[in-house]
Write a protein that binds this DNA or RNA. Structure first.
Lengths: 342, 342
DNA sequence: CTGAAAGCGCTTACAG
DNA sequence: CTGAAAGCGCTTACAG
C-alpha cells in the first residue's frame, strides 16, 4: 500500500499530485492555479482536468507562505446595525466571481478593539482590509495601509494617499433630512449625535445639519445633543429633550436605531408623531418600513458601498497605489414619521 | 548594512530572530509560543522578553503549515437578526484569554451557501467551525466533523456523535409562549413558522406549540402557517391570516422580526394589540423593548450559547472526541403585546 | 530541559 | 512555453 503516488496523510490533494496526474511540473500547476501568464491552453486544460478529477483544493496556509491567501478581512464595529447587512450583500456580490473570500471580524469596544482585530488579520496574512465605520485616526490608517491594502467605508479622509475611502455624502444626507423637515413646517429641529468624537461621518452629518439649519434661517435653533451608544443613555437623553421646557418639534437622528428609541420615548410620553414631533433617521434600515415605526430615513445604499469597496480593494491588491475616494449620493426616503397630514 | 542578524525583508520578526536574540534554539521559541511542556521557566522568561523586545508576532500561515492557525470559523446564515449579536458577545468573551480568534462568514442563500463558506474555512486551515442556525443535514455535518472539530448552535441533533450541539430548549420555549397566551385568555392561537423545512429548531418550536395547544384543550385551533423569509411573503401571509374569516386572536411567531411585521400589518388593519390580537416572538431581541413594539418574546440567552459553543469547540480542538449536547432553558419575557389589561 | 534538521504545500526567480 | 530547486516561517519527531 505504499506504492501509489497519491499517498496522502491528510486526505488533501496537493499540487504535486495534480502535477503527477497531469504529467506536468509543479510550477506549471501553480501557474494555472494563479491564472499566471505563460501557460499554453493545452497545458492549462490538462491541469484543470486533473484538478477536477482529484478534487484539488488549494492549501491557503501554504499559499500564504509565499503569495496571497485570497482572503480579505472586513472589520465591523457592531453587528447589530442592520445597515451592515446591506454592505455585506454588496461585498458578497463583488466577491462572487473571484477566488477571494471575505472573513469578518467584529470589534466590541471593551472586549476587542478595532486595531486588535486588524492586527490579527494581518497576522493571518489576509491580502487586504476593509474597515467599516472606523474610529481610528490617520496615523493608524497609514500604519495599516503600509502593511496591507486598505479601504474604509464610512470614514471621510479625502486627502488620504495611502488607502481608499468609500462613503455616501453624509453632509448632503443630513441636509436632505433637515430641508425635508423644514419644508414640512418644523422649525425647532434638534439633532441626536454620538459622543464618541472621532467619527468623521458623524462630524459630516453634524456639519450638514448646521448648514441646512443656517440656510433655512434657523441658526438659533441649532441643537446638537451628543450621547453615548448605550440604550439607557439614549433613552435618558431623549427623555430630557422631550420633557424639557423648550421641546424641539423635530429630531434628526444620526442613525435609525436612535430614531426608533426616540419614537419609543415619544410614544411613552404620549406625544403624537408626526404632529407633535417629526423624526428622521439615517441608513434606511429594514425596520423603517414597519407601520409602528414608519420612519423617514436617509438611504446611503449600503450594497453599493460594499460592492465598490471590495472592487477598490482588489484593485489595490493587484497593484494600484494611487488613492481613490468614492462618494455616493444619498437619497431621502420619507415616511409617516416626518410627514404631517396636509 | 548587511551584517545585522535582524535583517528582514518584510518588517516581520521571525521565530529565528527571536531565537538569536534570546540565545536559544528555534525549537525552544516554538515551544514557548505554543505553551508546550518541557521548557524551563528561565528559558521561557528569556524568550518572552525577546519576543516583547522585538515585537514578535506569530506568522499564522507558517503555523498553519504544520500545526494550528488559532482561528475558528463562525458561519452565520443571516447577519440581519440582532440575536446573532448576542451570540457574538459570548463568543468574544470566551475567546478573550486565548490565542484563538473568530472569523465570521455569512451565507446568503443565493450568492454563497453555508457549505461553500465551510469549505473556504477548511481551505484556510481553520482549527474548528461553529455553525449557527445550520440547515444542513447529518450527512454534511458528519462530513465537516470528519475534517474539523465542529459545534452547532441552533440545530438539534442530540444523537450526533461526531460533533457537539448547543441549543436552548426550543420546544419548551414555544410551550412557554403558548401557555402564557392561554393564561391571558387567548384561544385561537396561530403560529407563524418558516417554510424552509430543514430547520430542526423550527420543528422543535412547532412541536412545542402543538403540545401546548393540545394540553390546553385547544387542539382543534392548531394552525401553523409556514412562509418564506422574505418581507413580502411574510406581509402577505400576515394579512391573509388577519383578514380571514376565522382570524386568530393571537399569533406566536418563530422569531421577533416576523412578530414585528405582524405588529406592522395589524397596525395597518386597525387592530388593537393586545386587545384584538396577542403576539409573542422569539429571541427577545433589542427591538422588543421599544414602546411601539412592546413585544413579548422568548429569551434563549444567546450570549450563553455563544460562550458555551466556543468552550466546547476549544475542548474538541484540544482533543475531546466524545460528543456533548448542551441545552439551555429559555425564559419568557412578557411585555404589552400579549398582556391584556386586567 | 534543549537543539539540529526535516518538512508542511505552495510561489518565485532562474535556466532552458 | 516549461521545469528543477530554493525557500517562506513555523512544528515535529528525534537525538542528546
Amino acid at each position: 500500500m505504499t506504492a501509489t503516488g497519491a499517498e496522502k496523510k491528510n486526505g488533501r490533494v496537493t499540487i504535486r499530485e495534480v502535477a503527477e496526474d497531469a504529467g506536468v511540473s509543479v510550477a506549471a500547476v501553480s501557474k494555472v492555479l494563479r491564472d499566471a501568464y505563460g501557460v499554453s491552453d493545452a497545458l492549462r486544460a490538462k491541469v484543470r482536468a486533473s484538478m477536477d478529477r482529484l478534487g484539488y483544493r488549494p492549501h491557503t496556509a501554504a499559499r500564504g507562505m509565499r503569495g496571497q491567501t485570497y482572503t480579505i478581512g472586513l472589520v465591523l464595529p457592531d453587528i447589530r446595525n442592520p445597515f451592515f447587512a446591506d454592505i455585506m450583500v454588496g461585498v458578497n456580490n463583488a466577491l462572487e466571481r473571484t477566488q477571494y473570500r471575505a472573513m469578518i471580524g467584529i470589534s466590541e469596544s471593551s472586549v476587542i478593539t478595532e486595531m486588535a482585530i486588524v492586527d490579527s488579520m494581518i497576522d493571518r496574512q489576509m491580502d487586504g482590509i476593509v474597515l467599516i465605520g472606523s474610529t481610528e485616526d490617520r496615523g493608524n490608517h497609514d500604519r495599516i495601509a503600509s502593511l496591507k491594502p486598505l479601504v474604509t467605508i464610512g470614514h471621510h479622509d479625502p486627502e488620504a494617499t495611502s488607502f481608499d475611502t468609500v462613503n455616501n455624502n453624509d453632509q448632503q444626507g443630513a441636509m436632505l433630512a433637515v430641508q425635508h423637515l423644514v419644508a414640512g413646517g418644523y422649525r425647532s429641529i434638534a439633532m441626536l449625535s454620538l459622543s464618541s468624537g472621532t467619527s468623521t461621518i458623524l462630524s459630516q452629518r453634524e456639519l450638514g445639519y448646521r448648514r441646512a439649519m443656517i440656510e433655512a434661517g434657523l441658526g438659533k435653533a441649532i441643537n446638537i445633543v451628543q450621547i453615548p451608544q448605550t440604550l439607557r443613555e439614549v433613552q435618558l437623553a431623549a427623555r430630557r429633550l422631550l420633557e424639557g421646557s423648550r421641546r424641539p418639534d423635530a429630531i434628526f437622528c444620526w442613525t435609525d436605531f436612535i430614531a426608533l428609541e426616540v419614537i419609543s420615548v415619544a410614544t411613552e410620553l404620549g406625544l403624537s408623531i408626526p404632529a407633535d414631533l417629526g423624526i428622521v433617521g439615517y441608513d434606511n434600515t429594514v425596520y423603517c418600513d414597519f407601520a409602528q415605526n414608519s420612519l423617514s430615513s436617509v438611504d446611503q445604499s449600503g450594497e453599493q458601498l460594499g460592492l465598490q469597496a471590495v472592487r477598490l480593494l482588489i484593485e489595490r491588491i493587484k497593484g494600484r497605489s494611487k488613492a481613490e475616494h468614492l462618494v455616493v449620493t444619498p437619497r431621502l426616503v420619507t415616511r409617516g414619521s416626518s410627514t404631517r397630514a396636509g
